[in-house]
Design a protein around this nucleic acid. Structure first.
Length: 233
DNA sequence: CGCCAGGCCGTGT
DNA sequence: ACACGGCATGGC
């Protein structure tokens, strides 16, 4: 009996952890800053997001109070470095609009909503797709949900962990998330949030390390034993 | 200069 | 259900 794709993915977490160490994501000081980053980093390099966040910091708009005072046109200009500003600025205003209208402006109250209900509420917001929703759920609101991204999709595809390989789009995303849940299902539930947190951070770290994330990629932490068939003597 | 980045959405098959 | 193009900007 060969190791299951879930078990192999669980082992990849250990390999990446050994290679890159604890990541302690998300790189932000407050939950609201996580939300801002989650929107701004959509199809955008993180270095560009940092410039936008620096602009917002200078404008005292990294807090909810400061952010609310910021006119939409000013917000657009401040986040210009991270691109798509005509879409992202109204989307961020819509998030805070929901927060104010239904949760008295409190992220703690928002976080108290049951996970699946909360996820649907987030997905109903403009420019919030599955990855943004899950990033906010996990890193800003502390809910134990896995976050799938392009790097994980590459890993799973190149190591043939799913058949058929996950495509871009909702179905592919859900397949990746389900596989990740299976990978950590045997771990104590109390540790799931921390493990999902670290695992996603590690896949991004590996991707940024300019590693192909493929079994035959030289120097990749995942190259070692995962290149061979999963069965052992 | 061309390609791509920690997606999402509208439109067309 | 899936493919495809647009969205904006900056780094390499």
């Amino acid at each position: 009996m060969s190791r299951s794709p879930a078990r192999r993915l669980r082992h990849m977490h250990d390999l990446l952890f050994q290679a890159y160490g604890p990541q302690r994501w998300w790189p932000a000081r407050t939950p609201f800053e996580v939300v801002l980053g989650a929107y701004l980093t959509q199809n955008t390099a993180w270095t560009a997001v940092e410039r936008s966040l620096a602009n917002l910091r200078a404008a005292h708009a990294l807090t909810l109070e400061g952010f609310r005072k910021l006119p939409l046109s000013d917000l657009q200009n401040l986040i210009r470095p991270s691109g798509f500003h005509t879409r992202k600025a109204p989307a961020l205003k819509a998030f805070v609009g929901l927060l104010d209208a239904e949760f008295s402006g409190s992220l703690k109250k928002l976080a108290a909503v049951p996970t699946q209900t909360l996820r649907r509420r987030l997905l109903a917001l403009p420019r919030v797709g599955p990855e943004t929703a899950d990033a906010i759920l996990l890193y800003a609101l502390g809910h134990p949900v896995p976050v799938a991204d392009e790097y994980l999709r590459r890993i799973v595809t190149r190591h043939h962990l799913l058949k058929p390989p996950p495509a871009r789009g909702r179905a592919g995303y859900d397949a990746l998330a389900a596989l990740t849940r299976r990978a950590f299902a045997a771990d104590p539930p109390a540790q799931h949030a921390g493990l999902f947190n670290e695992f996603h951070a590690l896949t991004v770290a590996a991707g940024k390390a300019h590693c192909g994330l493929a079994p035959h990629c030289d120097g990749c932490p995942l190259a070692a034993d995962l290149a061979r068939p999963p069965s052992h003597p």
